[in-house]
Simulated scan of single mutants.
Amino acid sequence: MNVTEYIASGILESYVMGAVSDQERREVECLSSIYPDIRLELDQLSEVLENYALSHSVEPPESVKAKLMDQLDFDKPVQETIVRPMPVDMSTTNSSPTFRVTWIVAASMGLLLFLFSFYLLSQLRTTQKRLTSTQTDNSKMLAEVRQLRDQKTLADQALAVVRQPGTRTLELKGNDKAPQGTMLVFWNSQTHQVAVQVGSLPPLPADKQYQLWSMVGGKPVDAGVFETSSAAVQRMNRNVARAEAFAVTVEKRGGSPTPTLSTLLALAPINA
């Protein structure tokens, strides 16, 4: 059972008002004995409405008490009387019309204030839900803006490598393991910075990642890992001081200190 949705349905407010069926009443009482959150919400709701009704209660006019005291004579001796049933004529009753009207108005005002308090409570709940939803949307939007800002920063850094004087562009093409695979490697021998741009490479499982290697004296040197989900230029987090060729392998996510030669996808020498 979703307790949050049940509390937000408004059944508890109707229960406190006495505006529920016998089945609904039994259901609320049963669930409140099982779920502490429903019991707590019911107690808080009853307390709020009780305090609101007390704070807006209407005192009867002072004249009512005086009229009642005038009609009750406590000094007369108590005499035994014979009580016989007789029809009551409302026009001759001891209660005056002003007394009856006053109490009717007071009761009506009390009921209206009671119902209005439920309306205000319902509006408060709706406003709180909308505020929570707005805050969630704003948090998501802020996270997306930050992500886009970070991506732009990385893209600007990668493009700066490409635009530097002395940057060389090397095209790597896939072997028989990736015949349609293509990518570009940008390397600046003066600043030692490297960037890549993926054209087309086969998708990998979540626990695998492509890794770039620079070949120096016939030995592979780690040049960093990169993603294939973006066609933008990606700056590598490794500097390459010397390189005779570049190669790409498939490694476990995060990279490997040595290449897995069985997963070699591309190898291209650097022309002098």
Results as ranks from 00 to 15, higher is better:
Q147V: 03
Q147F: 07
E5P: 01
M183G: 00
T127C: 15
Q164N: 06
D222G: 05
V162L: 08
S230G: 08
V105I: 15
Y52G: 02
K67T: 11
M17C: 11
A268S: 09
F118N: 09
L264I: 04
G18C: 10
Q197C: 10
T182L: 11
R26V: 13
A155L: 11
V198I: 09
V48P: 03
L12M: 06
V3M: 05
S200A: 07
E29R: 03
K129S: 14
A266L: 02
D89P: 04
E50I: 03
I11G: 05
L159C: 05
P60Y: 11
M1L: 10
E144G: 04
T126G: 15
D73N: 08
P179Y: 06
E13K: 00
I34V: 14
K208T: 06
Q151K: 02
M141K: 06
K67D: 12
R149I: 00
D222M: 07
S57A: 14
P60R: 09
G166M: 03
S117R: 00
P203V: 12
A245E: 15
F186C: 00
S32H: 09
R235H: 12
A266W: 00
G199C: 10
A158H: 01
N271G: 04
L184V: 01
W187A: 00
Q135E: 07
N94K: 10
K76P: 07
R146I: 06
R84D: 14
V250K: 00
A268Y: 02
L40R: 15
E59I: 12
S96A: 05
Q180V: 05
Y15H: 13
P97N: 06
P85A: 11
S122W: 13
L42A: 12
M90I: 08
P165W: 01
K152V: 03
F74I: 08
K65D: 13
N271Y: 02
T249L: 04
K65T: 15
S63G: 13
T260L: 05
V248I: 05
V233A: 04
V28D: 09
E41I: 03
L267N: 02
A106I: 15
L42T: 02
Q23W: 08
V196A: 10
P179C: 04
L172Q: 00
V28C: 12
P203G: 11
F186Y: 10
L72Q: 04
F246H: 01
S63P: 04
E47S: 05
F114M: 10
P202C: 07
A178L: 02
N175T: 02
L12I: 07
S230Q: 09
D137V: 08
M183W: 01
Q157I: 02
M1V: 11
V162G: 03
R149F: 00
R242E: 13
E244L: 08
A178T: 01
R253N: 14
E13Y: 04
R39H: 14
R100S: 06
I270V: 11
R149T: 01
G224W: 01
S91M: 13
M109Q: 15
M90L: 10
C30H: 12
P87A: 09
P36H: 15
D137M: 12
V198P: 01
